[in-house]
Amino acid sequence: MEFEPLGESMLLVRFGDAIDVDTTQRVHAAAKVLRAAALPGLHDLVPAYASLGVAFDASTWDDGRKPPWCNLVVRIEALLERAATDAGAEAAACITIPVCYGGAHGADLAAVAAHAGITIDEVVARHCAVVYRVALLGFAPGFAYLLGLDPLLHMPRRAEPRLRVPAGSVAIGGAQTGIYPRELPGGWQLLGRTPLHLFDASAASPALLAPGDRVRFVAIDAARFDTWPRSGGAA
């Protein structure tokens, strides 16, 4: 564990330098501990692949002598040390996401199949075979980066990003797969589209997915996509 102050009111707690499931799980465990501790003057927690950003109010942690971030580090170290001993494996929520693969909803499905040297059906089967883990939400509100993509499906981003990727698009970017929560510009390869709403700022629980959640995809046909209830609950 390593601490890096990012300016005067953000602290990065770093657990590693690479993308791997164990490191990400440590990040999520630490976020959970800090959230539960409800430390004063913490504005936000920003879990990422290998680090946890802690946005804090400098005045709350300023004793007029030591830099505020040093005072915060002392508290965080104590909290995480205690938590390390009872970090039991915990069953995270598993959310099933219906996806209409290919056709108008997945413009790059054939290109992904060609890149992997397999059939379209096999791409869909492999994409649906894995239980993914939400590593982080970033880029845009509700945009989930999922870990666990089958290595055969890894594919670089498009050379020319699209100006408009439709909301709900399920896509591949390098070693990751993710879902566009709303219409956004983007360079990921589009496999298909889910009728679910990933993000709604006016909802009590705005994001369908949270860091640490498990996710699996299930294929639906275009007719099912079109008739999916507009309220968009999980499958």
């Binding site: 990012l6 300016g7 770093r14 920003v46 990422a48 692949y49 950003g53 970033g138």
Partner: peptide, 29 residues
């Protein structure tokens, strides 16, 4: 690099070589 938290005033260097100073509406990571 692996994406991580950024904050107001973080000076990023995208591949084009022109730095970007993040302001209030910056993405979280």
């Amino acid at each position: 690099l692996v994406s991580e938290a950024v904050t107001d005033g973080s000076l990023q260097l995208p591949p084009g070589g022109q730095p970007i100073m993040l302001m209030a509406e910056h993405p979280t990571t």
